[in-house]
Write a protein that binds this DNA or RNA. Structure first.
Lengths: 239, 239
DNA sequence: AAGTGGTCTAGACCACGGC
DNA sequence: CCGTGGTCTAGACCACTTC
């Protein structure tokens, strides 16, 4: 017996064919996309189905629709408010980054952090500390807290090389979906100052993150300290 | 002759009727909404039209649709990354805030800022400076830059009392839609330190915003300095 | 005037969920 | 099983833009 595979809806097929034209460069930003009526004929579907395809592409920001005029490939949009791993951020800027694992310990009682992760106050926590470097200059100090029970063996993994996001997804079937962040400024204490090569008391951007998995569970708490001369946070907000 | 008014589409009417049921509390989070077929009968439209209404309400996050089960009022979502005026932020926290207008001047040449607003480098700029207080303690110093030509008479308006967002909308038909922000940390210079009542060199959260109107035009540049002990930025980001 | 997207009809079959 | 949303048809008229 063949597996029960889901048939791909016609409107999805149309979307994919247009997306492919854009990916392969056959359609560039501003170019007109086939009209609803053309698509209906080409793919032998009704108008409403072709329409559905274009409507969803517009929602995704791939195309823009202009009444009376046509449907056009949208300008490549800047990704705002996108949660990216360190590796992703670096490559997006055309840089290469590296990390140094400073510590990997287990904590017995850290009720504040346990509470942030919705754990009991006596939960054992895994604590990892990484120094982030760009062009061999340190620019961030990040401390990770995870429930020790949920991620056995994590401390022994290749944390220097692989992205934590990738390890969580590959080895623990945990996919990060979103993060809530608190951001403020704080003076560097002596240890942070030394590691980040700034003077003591220098202003650092402090970011406290709680990362959530696709299932909505709090997975991970991150405390990040960023050299303000080498790091700017970009945000877009809406009214 | 009657003016040519746009007729309200049937699917919009359906959306409004459902939104009203929710606003007035007749439907609460989790309650089932009339099904597509019910709505089609009630409003005497075809299934596709009723469907359109529900689909758009889902996109707006008002309802959730579950195949095989029904359409339900969505939980009231927490507003993250919402661009709020000072007044709105204060009242959301149950506090009352006040402002002191420190300066209102016109600048002749400030090419960096003009560039952020997509103006020529010789554009005249209106510069306003406000100190923000919560519970009569200063916590933020904000400097606004606007094209002087676009907002005649703004400097003479009731800037101490009214929200700038409100003035722009009421008197200049300019509605703010979104903002792009750069955030980092910076040490307080002597003037900021004095105004904010912190010691010189204390870490401040610095936020540079460009605010855009609904028409997509850059309207306003804001440089904000926030006392880090009294202000935390909350952000939600997605992968 | 010709072509585009926006709205709408009056049905159809399917996959899924809860009973 | 029955009701739900998901997909789809083969048209229609309208408003808008471009020429």
């Amino acid at each position: 017996m063949a597996k029960a595979r889901k048939p791909i809806p016609a409107y999805k097929t149309i979307q994919n064919s247009i997306a492919k034209l854009i990916r392969t460069g056959k359609l560039k930003a501003g170019d007109p996309v086939s009209s609803e009526r053309e698509l209906a004929k080409i793919h032998d579907v009704s108008l409403m189905t072709a329409r559905h395809a274009l409507m969803e592409l517009e929602r995704e920001g791939v195309v823009e629709r202009k009444r009376g005029s046509g449907t056009f490939v949208a300008l490549p949009k800047i990704q705002f408010n996108r949660l990216m791993s360190f590796t992703e951020q670096m490559s997006a800027r055309g840089l290469t980054g590296s990390s140094r694992l400073l510590q990997a310990t287990t904590l017995d009682s850290e009720p504040d952090i346990a509470a942030r992760l919705n754990l009991g106050s006596d939960a054992r926590l895994l604590r990892l500390e990484r120094l982030r470097l760009a062009a061999s200059e340190p620019f961030a100090l990040e401390t990770y807290f995870l429930p020790a029970d949920g991620f056995p063996g994590l401390a022994r993994k290749s944390l220097e090389r692989d992205s934590l996001f990738a390890i969580l997804q590959r080895d623990y079937a945990t996919k990060i979906a979103h993060a809530d962040e608190e951001i403020d400024a704080t003076p560097a204490d002596s240890r942070s100052a030394e590691l980040l090569k700034v003077s003591k008391g220098a202003p650092l951007l402090r970011m406290r993150q709680v990362l959530y998995s696709t299932s909505g569970k709090a997975v991970l708490h991150v405390l990040g300290l960023y050299r303000s001369d080498r790091h700017t946070l970009m945000i877009r907000r809406f009214r």
